[in-house]
């Protein structure tokens, strides 16, 4: 699959009182077409700076970035991409329909029927004549998504798309993003809502202090490396006789629960259970939560930084 976004040693340096700081430091990213890519990191990690460089709003200090096969910032690719910034502001005196007309005019569009369809898609058809100042936060986010769909983009950059929304608005936005994938669009999401990212993203990258700390398929990153085996009809002698490295076991009323490293000989354990006339109830690979991975990755980097 072709890369929708590719960066090579992308770096952004700012000067401050204490000298030069690399806000984004030799970033190497690859986002494939048609996937939902989660770009995660603590506040000030360099997420928004990276997005701005990919959009050509700010310029890299070093390195390169290609978006849809062209140099980032090429005005031609702006016809095929869109951006929803974090906490966006829209001209408050305008109505929802006027917002779409304004942003549509920036593409040279004047298709009122299309604007109408977009408003229906984001559930704002009934509120199209209300001014933005009368819109709730969720409605403003939805009109933001509508404006980002005006050009039927191949690639969407969404910066905290569900930030500060109530649970219903949250689910609505999440469902819309899932629809984008079904339509073959590539979505690049920067978010702190890790449970959302875990549900909808195909791949993620975790960035901290401008550097990539982890990157890959979500399934690979969250694979816990451990397996949980549950078996019934066993004796306490069997449970006590188990000699397993790094495993945790619990036994109660004939039920044995073992949490074992997948590198260990868990097939031997299953054979042992069967030989002891036990009944294997389940064998489950344990998956970590994204939140655990995120916290672990960021803390590891912070402790490495502190020890230097």
């Amino acid at each position: 699959m072709a890369a929708a976004i590719e960066t090579q040693n992308l770096t952004k340096t700012y000067k401050n009182r204490s000298g030069k700081v690399n806000v984004v430091d030799q970033l190497n990213l690859s986002v494939e077409e048609g996937e939902i890519f989660g770009f995660l990191g603590p506040n000030g990690a360099g997420k928004t700076t990276t997005i701005k460089m990919l959009l050509g709003i700010i310029y890299p200090s070093a390195g390169q970035a290609q978006v849809l096969g062209k140099e980032a910032g090429d005005i031609g690719i702006h016809r095929s991409i869109s951006y929803l910034p974090e906490k966006p502001y829209y001209y408050e005196h305008m109505t929802g329909m006027e917002i779409l007309k304004f942003y549509g005019a920036l593409f040279g569009l004047s298709d009122t029927a299309m604007y109408q369809r977009l408003l229906e898609r984001v559930n704002l058809a009934g509120d199209q004549h209300k001014t933005i100042s009368q819109y709730s936060k969720g409605m403003q986010q939805r009109i933001g998504l509508a404006q980002s769909l005006l050009n039927d983009p191949k690639l969407l950059f969404l910066d905290e798309p569900t930030g500060g929304l109530d649970p219903i608005a949250h689910i609505e936005i999440r469902d819309l993003i899932l629809q984008f994938r079904e339509e073959g669009k590539t979505v690049f999401i920067s978010s702190h809502a890790l449970s959302d990212v875990e549900r909808i993203c195909d791949r993620v990258a975790i960035i901290n202090k401008g550097k990539i700390a982890a990157q890959g398929k979500l399934d690979d990153l969250l694979r816990g490396g451990r397996i949980e085996i549950i078996a019934d009809n066993l004796t306490s002698e069997f449970a006590q006789g188990l000699k397993l490295n790094g495993a945790t076991t619990s036994f109660n009323a004939g039920r044995l629960i073992v949490d074992i490293d997948e590198a260990e000989d868990f097939n031997g354990l299953i054979d042992g259970i069967r030989n002891a006339k036990g009944k294997v109830v389940s064998v489950l690979p344990r998956r970590r939560r994204l939140e655990d991975l995120f916290v672990e990755t960021v803390r590891n980097l912070q402790s490495q930084g502190a020890s230097k």
Binding site: I57, H78, R79, Y83
Partner: peptide, 14 residues
Amino acid sequence: ERRTIYTILSKPVH
């Protein structure tokens, strides 16, 4: 400050 410039400059606007 209001970030409107980002939504405008991310469109095909010089």
